[in-house]
């Protein structure tokens, strides 16, 4: 079965990101397909590679990146939400004249239409939030 996942909260403050990660892992183990993970609201903070938690803590950003690489999962950060919160990729850096970017490997920044498309294309949309 094809799943779309929406993550509305940033890592660490809220359990939503970890719950979504655990759900995605379990779905993949059961042979399901993850069409897309869409990060919205503060969820866009899952996509910054500057995250550096203590060594004995889970690195949520890396966990997403590794999952994306291993299973070819589309990790999409909402552009409007990202701009508000300072999540920047190369394209956004150029467009908005920023002095750097911070997007983590495996993530891409795109529009809200990607969430609607995930709702249309996936057989189930599962939302993790506050």
């Amino acid at each position: 079965m094809k799943f779309g996942i929406q993550v509305n909260e940033g890592p660490y403050t809220h359990e939503a990101s970890v719950s979504a990660l655990n759900f995605v892992k379990a779905a993949l183990e059961a042979g399901h397909e993850i069409f897309r993970v869409f990060f919205y609201h503060d969820g866009v903070n899952n996509g910054t590679r500057y995250t550096t938690p203590p060594q004995d803590d889970i690195n949520i950003v890396n966990a997403w990146s590794e999952l994306a690489e291993k299973h070819n999962i589309d990790l999409v950060v909402c552009v409007a939400a990202a701009q508000r919160r300072g999540i920047v990729d190369e394209g956004e850096q150029e467009r908005n004249g920023k002095d750097g970017n911070n997007i983590a490997p495996g993530f891409r920044i795109s529009g809200l239409g990607q969430l609607i498309e995930a709702g249309i294309q996936s057989e189930r949309l599962v939302v993790f939030g506050d």
């Binding site: 799943f3 759900f23 892992k25 379990a26 059961a30 189930r124 949309l125």
Partner: peptide, 17 residues
């Protein structure tokens, strides 16, 4: 467990969070 969580989403037609 999480495996069961996934199964529940499959058994039902949609998820309302």
């Amino acid at each position: 467990d999480y495996k069961g969580f996934v199964e529940l989403t499959v058994e039902n037609d949609k998820v309302n969070a």
